[in-house]
Amino acid sequence: MNSMVLKSFIGLRKSSSEPTHFAVHQKYATISFPQKLKVIAEKTSPKLQGRNLRVAIVGGGPAGGSAAETLAKGGIETFLIERKMDNCKPCGGAIPLCMVGEFDLPLDIIDRRVTKMKMISPSNVAVDIGRTLKPHEYIGMVRREVLDAYLRDRAKENGATIINGLFLKMDMPKDKNSPYVLHYSGYDGKTGGVGEKRTLEVDAVIGADGANSRVAKAIDAGDYEYAIAFQERIKIPDEKMVYYENLAEMYVGDDVSPDFYGWVFPKCDHVAVGTGTVTHKADIKKFQLATRKRAEDKIIGGKIIRVEAHPIPEHPRPRRQGGWPLWGMQPGM
């Protein structure tokens, strides 16, 4: 049964007597995900006289792309800064069914619908852990470079300005009516080399630039413990890919990771084989070799087509600063 969900957004113009309201209707294929999102800004600052609020979002992953879309829909002048427009990450490639509705994702963005999951012990005894899924439920497998690009493009369609740039630093406001000044290297129209040094003045900043966040560093949010995730995309023969059509495997044991797990996840026409660790980061490649060895009989003959690695926060950053939201992985969530 199709359902209609209303999302309300509140924009801002100092010159108007009331905030501007925007509404967007969304259809979800099978399940209702009721929610109401609001973007609210105070109308007390003289610096907003006669214009919209200006917000910069640093980081173009799912958190940054979604924030940019929401703000742009609300009538806020929105800028999203992202350096790697084709960035791939080993994390976030498996999404729950609820995210399809909450993010209003098209079904064709999902490469594989995993309905079977196996946990494999150190002695290679496999246990089926996918029995808790209901008949209509699945875990969606996506490629982050595809998902992230889709969300950024949708933000752009709704009015956000997407900047291909590397955020460098931020100058704090000198007083309550002064802007934040972001310094970045711009790469729009460039295929490589050194970017052009540019600045951007905004009223607010959202940091969504990942675990190694420069925004978090600029506001002294503190350090935290993190895991390293390492993953290889492997193109295996078609007859072996049939085995992983709707199956994900997770391997446990000190050989693949002393504190994490190894995995084999199906993607569009290949598998992602990876592992992670918090306590033994220097040994991550050794754990990766062990994960491949454990799955060897099912991926033999495969060719590595891509290698990815990324830090994953293990807990929130120790300090929060008023006025600077940290979203996604960046705050340690």
Rank of each mutant, 00 (worst) to 15 (best):
E145F: 00
Y150V: 00
Y180W: 15
S45P: 10
H270D: 13
I139E: 10
G61E: 06
K240L: 12
V307L: 14
Y261D: 11
A23F: 01
K7P: 05
D220W: 02
L133H: 11
Y251P: 14
G75T: 10
A160P: 00
M170V: 12
S178P: 01
Q49K: 14
R198T: 14
A204R: 12
M170I: 13
V242P: 03
G11D: 08
I139F: 09
K169P: 04
T279V: 01
K27F: 07
P34A: 11
E157W: 03
S66F: 01
I76S: 05
K47V: 06
K286L: 07
G193W: 01
G186V: 00
C88N: 15
I312P: 06
S16D: 09
S17D: 15
T199P: 00
P311T: 08
E314R: 09
T115K: 15
Q49C: 05
S123A: 12
G101H: 09
P331G: 11
V205P: 02
R144Q: 09
I76T: 07
V39D: 04
T115L: 04
A248Q: 03
P237K: 04
F260S: 06
D223R: 08
P318H: 04
G192M: 08
M117V: 15
S8K: 12
A208W: 04
A211Y: 04
I40N: 10
E137W: 05
K134Y: 00
E308A: 07
K156L: 03
Q35W: 07
D254R: 06
I40A: 12
I305A: 05
V142I: 14
A63K: 04
T70H: 05
K286N: 11
R198S: 13
D104L: 02
M250E: 10
M117F: 00
E308H: 02
I284D: 14
Y226L: 08
N158D: 11
A56N: 06
Y244W: 14
C88S: 15
V24L: 11
A218K: 04
H310P: 08
E308R: 06
K298T: 13
G195W: 08
G93W: 03
D86F: 12
N124T: 06
S16N: 09
A63Q: 03
K27V: 02
A272F: 01
Y243D: 11
I40C: 13
T30M: 05
E245K: 15
K7C: 06
P96D: 08
S185T: 00
P316K: 03
S3L: 07
V202S: 00
Y224D: 01
D259L: 02
I129Q: 05
I219G: 13
V252W: 01
E145H: 05
M170S: 11
G50K: 08
P122I: 02
G222A: 01
R317M: 04
A56P: 07
G301V: 02
F103Q: 03
Q231L: 13
